[in-house]
Design a protein around this nucleic acid. Structure first.
Lengths: 208, 208, 208, 208
DNA sequence: TATGAATGAGCTTTCATTCAT
DNA sequence: TATGAATGAAAGCTCATTCAT
């Protein structure tokens, strides 16, 4: 099985066409969400959920695979947007806390799609690439901050910023998976505070 | 789709039958490993890889699902066994380092099966349970240690041991996924040392 | 499957409409010619080749079938026109030679459409009728000549003119198929001369 | 559309498998015969006619195309076998007459399949090749005879044996098509005698 | 037990035709 | 008339599961 390129250039569509295409994407998101599984969501389900005829699916997408790539990219982008901390202050501790809270809230909102993306990633190597890309963007943002903080003496300089950023993203990312997908129960406030403490400690930030 | 109980009690099999059954499990592991995907591995592939007739599969297993559950449980057990630190000393720092190294080595060895289990988990809720169980055993071991270390004043007592254990397992677990499944490249020694440092820092252990 | 009557009476069309209709027929001929197959030529292909909107096809034709019937009739007529010997002399030998050369040249020009008509004839019995009609016109012309030549003592009178005309048309027709459709290679001049000799011999015409 | 190689080597099949395969080929022949069309005969029809489950078709053939190639080759072989003159005498006139009668009888028996092969030939170039091959075998046999007769002074030596053989085969072949497929009515005895006379005349054989 | 052929539900995809604009 | 999006019936193919030997 090969992986299709996500259609980067969406060719000119009539307004009506664009609307149907959008309905299909939205319907697909619901359909995937309902079944909770990439393989078990049929084109029929997507069409039905979109209120569109079966055949119309193929007017806009070559295959389920192609649609899913586009959808996955959109979700991943949304998560990235939502994960951008709205906290603009200078204090690392508060910044970390704000970011983690935002990320986990976003994870909760997109938990099902994230699971499905994970599942599909086992099928399509290209999707793994997408997954790495998303991570990469988060990680990069964090790496830059770590280095800045290291320069300012706020973070232990012996830590490798790149590995550290990856590892801390892993911590929060996988904790979100555990919490919202696997369904491990946690006390919300306790969990959030602990996660942030672990980041702060791990980086060697001295609480003020 | 419902999830079958893994057949906990294997009923009396002749020695020959037991051998065929084992060959099927071993062959299945190779077949899943080769294709890297639960859905794309056919019963034919498993039978062929096992050197067993197509139809014999159903003499020993009710379905592909049932076999997979048993296989997944076995893999998960192996990982747990391998993840049991052979370091028996008392120093937390060394203990953590040894455990992380062992866990990640084990992850690398089982990376493909772990991905497939992840994929199948999206299909069968029961598998998610299994996944949580494995995690739970690791986490429990770590939680016990953390609490012991907290009692001895080696670890910050303000941290919740349960959440902390989960979060740190997430860190290592997901880092393994990133490294060995998504294929993010890391310098081995740097990565391992950094991971361990982050654990030690996070727990507030004072390096000696 | 039933066969539609070719619309013999084209109802009143505006001049613009007539032009679009003609473009569709011309475009269809090109489209069929390009694909070389009735079933594999899509309405889209025809519309695209005609520079006409998809839906407009159905403004002028009820179905692909109907258009094809009209097109086939046109092609068949053209072949008949082209097959009408421009040689006006009285010598049977020269007349036969001229007719064969013209027919085979015409066959070559229309080879692809002839194959497609053959293919479609298997789908629509009415098309077989059309095929027989074309043949019938050629055959009739030849039968008349044979009888005339028999009256004048130029052709063996023991031959049945009807069967003979059919058989000789078969000879040339199928030779054209072999040559231009199946692609059997022949030296052009040798082939043409031999064909004519065979006709002349077969009819028992004494070369002068 | 590409044309598959007819599976030249039928790999070892169990006797039961061989039987099912044969039933499919026989059933397909009936199904094609009933519908009279390659494209309109569905795999379902073939399976039903063979008294075999739908899926079993794919146990033995990759596609309708592949089965058809094998079937077409078989029919073509049968025609060749049946077309081998059982007349073993030395008289050209009688030999020609016997061969034409046999060929046309055989054509009548296989008329429907021949039409379908013709239709499919428009779809698959490889089938055209097969068609040419069959012709080639007939033609070759006739060419050899013509040359032999030329050596013995029985046939006009100015005729090119290769082109002549092809042209005469065309005559009989296409006459068969006209008669048995297009359904042009002929008096049997008159037609057969005329055809033979035309061959004899065309070759310049002196009736004894 | 072992074997592998047989089964058929289920899914994807195509495309002639309809229809709203 | 012209347009091209929408429709959905068909058809091909796959593969987990059953079953006769």
């Amino acid at each position: 099985m090969t992986s299709p390129q996500p259609s980067t250039v969406t060719q000119a569509l009539s307004p009506k066409g664009q609307r149907t295409r959008d309905r299909l994407l939205a319907g697909a998101r619901r359909a995937f969400g309902d079944s909770g599984s990439y393989v078990e969501t049929r084109i029929t389900d997507i069409a039905k959920e979109s209120g569109v005829a079966y055949g119309s699916f193929y007017t806009y997408f070559d295959s389920k695979e192609q649609l899913f790539f586009e959808l996955a990219a959109a979700v991943v982008n949304e998560m990235y947007e939502e994960g951008t901390s709205r906290y603009r202050g200078d204090d690392p501790t508060e910044r970390i806390d704000a970011a983690n809270r935002q990320f986990l809230a976003s994870y909760q909102a997109h938990a099902v799609m994230m699971t499905i993306i994970e599942q599909a990633a086992a099928l399509y190597p290209d999707l793994r690439e997408l997954r790495r890309e998303l991570r990469g963007r988060f990680v990069e943002r964090i790496r830059v901050n770590i280095e800045r903080w290291q320069t300012r003496g706020l973070v232990e300089s012996s830590l490798d910023a790149h590995v550290t950023a990856h590892a801390l993203v892993s911590l929060t990312d996988n904790f979100g998976y555990l919490w919202f997908v696997l369904g491990e129960p946690f006390d919300e406030e306790l969990a959030l505070r602990t996660i942030s403490s672990l980041w702060v400690n791990a980086l060697g930030i001295h609480k003020q």
